Amino acid sequence: KYFGTAKARYDFCARDRSELSLKEGDIIKILNKKGQQGWWRGEIYGRVGWFPANYVEEDYS
Score class of each variant (00 low, 15 high):
1 K>H: 12
2 Y>G: 11
2 Y>Q: 12
2 Y>H: 11
3 F>P: 09
4 G>H: 08
4 G>Y: 10
5 T>L: 12
5 T>E: 09
5 T>G: 03
6 A>M: 03
6 A>I: 01
8 A>R: 01
9 R>I: 08
9 R>V: 11
9 R>T: 12
9 R>L: 14
11 D>R: 08
11 D>M: 07
12 F>T: 00
12 F>I: 05
13 C>A: 13
13 C>I: 12
14 A>E: 01
14 A>G: 09
14 A>H: 05
14 A>Q: 05
15 R>D: 06
15 R>Q: 09
15 R>K: 11
16 D>G: 12
16 D>S: 14
16 D>W: 04
18 S>H: 12
18 S>Q: 06
18 S>K: 09
20 L>C: 00
21 S>T: 08
22 L>H: 06
22 L>A: 05
23 K>I: 05
23 K>Y: 09
24 E>D: 07
25 G>T: 00
25 G>I: 00
26 D>G: 00
27 I>T: 14
28 I>G: 01
28 I>S: 02
29 K>R: 14
30 I>N: 02
31 L>G: 02
31 L>I: 14
31 L>K: 07
31 L>W: 09
32 N>Q: 14
32 N>L: 08
32 N>C: 14
33 K>W: 03
34 K>F: 07
34 K>H: 13
35 G>P: 09
36 Q>W: 11
36 Q>L: 13
36 Q>M: 15
37 Q>L: 12
39 W>M: 13
39 W>S: 04
40 W>K: 07
40 W>N: 05
41 R>F: 15
42 G>S: 02
43 E>C: 07
43 E>M: 07
45 Y>F: 15
45 Y>C: 13
46 G>D: 10
46 G>F: 00
46 G>K: 05
47 R>D: 08
48 V>S: 13
48 V>Q: 15
48 V>K: 13
49 G>A: 06
51 F>D: 00
52 P>R: 01
52 P>V: 02
53 A>W: 06
53 A>H: 13
54 N>P: 08
54 N>K: 12
54 N>M: 10
55 Y>H: 09
56 V>R: 00
57 E>G: 06
57 E>K: 08
58 E>I: 07
58 E>H: 05
60 Y>L: 15
60 Y>E: 14
60 Y>C: 11
61 S>I: 10
61 S>F: 08
